[in-house]
């Protein structure tokens, strides 16, 4: 079964409906570059338990209704960061959103809309080209840089020094933040929140010696000064990283020449 007209009713009777399940409508933005000129919406009425994750519903649709439905997912437990998508208009990991949190008021039909994340080219269905995202990530040199002779023992760091950048070590590079940023949508040359978060992780690491290099990169026209503090990134982060705060800390480091 390939892409069909929007009005088609999909046969979802093959999906096993466990006891206690209810029917929800999953409205997915579909796009097949070999057939479609532009994306369109398709709806699937599927059985769902309140404890199901949105990813379960997508897997059921893929396994029992339409095998061509494309999306990324790997660990399915909110660690790998593969299944970032726009769920009900908000960037989330499909494996961390439970159906019970999306249910409509009593007696009303629940509709869950699922679309690819914005600002990155959609390749197929919910699957986007992540290369611009990773290009910005690589550009901030997200690895330890230390000069001089290699130490013969571990690089020691105090608990307080480690705490300084603890928040930004949590990033799983899912692109929820970057693809929720209006400045990133408008012009793809902005580094985006995720790249700045990963720069922050090394800029404020006492063992790293290239803070200045990274600050220089982020001081450029496409760097932190394009941030408008809309807080979309902080709201979107599935790991609860205070992304906007991290960006502000980089701005402050640039402003006062102090890390």
């Amino acid at each position: 079964m390939t892409a069909v007209a929007e009005s088609t009713v999909h046969d979802t009777s093959q999906i096993p409906a466990p006891e206690g399940s209810l029917t929800v409508t999953v409205k997915i933005q579909r796009f097949n570059p070999e057939i479609d000129d532009e994306p369109h919406w398709e709806s699937y009425d599927v059985p769902a338990l309140p404890t199901d994750r949105v990813l379960n519903l997508l897997m059921n649709i893929k396994n029992y209704v339409d095998g061509t439905l494309s999306f990324r997912r790997s660990c399915a437990h909110g660690i790998c960061g593969s299944d970032a998508m726009q769920i009900n208009g908000i960037n989330r990991l499909a494996c961390k959103v439970l159906v019970k949190d999306l249910l409509a008021k009593k007696g009303k039909q629940t509709t869950i809309t699922v679309a690819p994340i914005k600002g990155l080219p959609t390749m197929k269905d919910l699957y986007v080209d992540m290369e611009p995202f990773f290009e910005a990530y690589r550009a901030v040199k997200p690895y330890l840089i230390a000069y001089g002779n290699e130490p013969t023992r571990e690089r020691i760091q105090s608990a307080a020094d480690r705490e300084r950048f603890d928040d930004t070590t949590k990033c799983i590079l899912c692109a929820c933040c970057t693809s929720s940023c209006p400045v990133y949508w408008a012009d793809g040359s902005y580094f985006g929140p995720a790249a700045i978060v990963n720069a922050h992780r090394f800029i404020f690491d006492s063992r790293d010696e290239a803070s200045e290099e990274r600050l220089d990169i982020l001081n450029d026209a496409e760097g932190v000064w394009r941030c408008r503090t809309t807080f979309n990134c902080t709201d979107a982060c599935p790991r609860g990283i205070q992304v906007t705060k991290a960006i502000q800390e980089v701005k402050r480091a640039l402003l006062f020449k102090r890390v």
């Binding site: 220089d216 990169i217 001081n219 450029d220 026209a221 760097g223 000064w225 394009r226 640039l254 402003l255």
Partner: peptide
């Protein structure tokens, strides 16, 4: 490459 000036700042 970064222009390395403080104009934006």
């Amino acid at each position: 490459a970064a222009r390395r000036n403080n104009f934006e700042l």
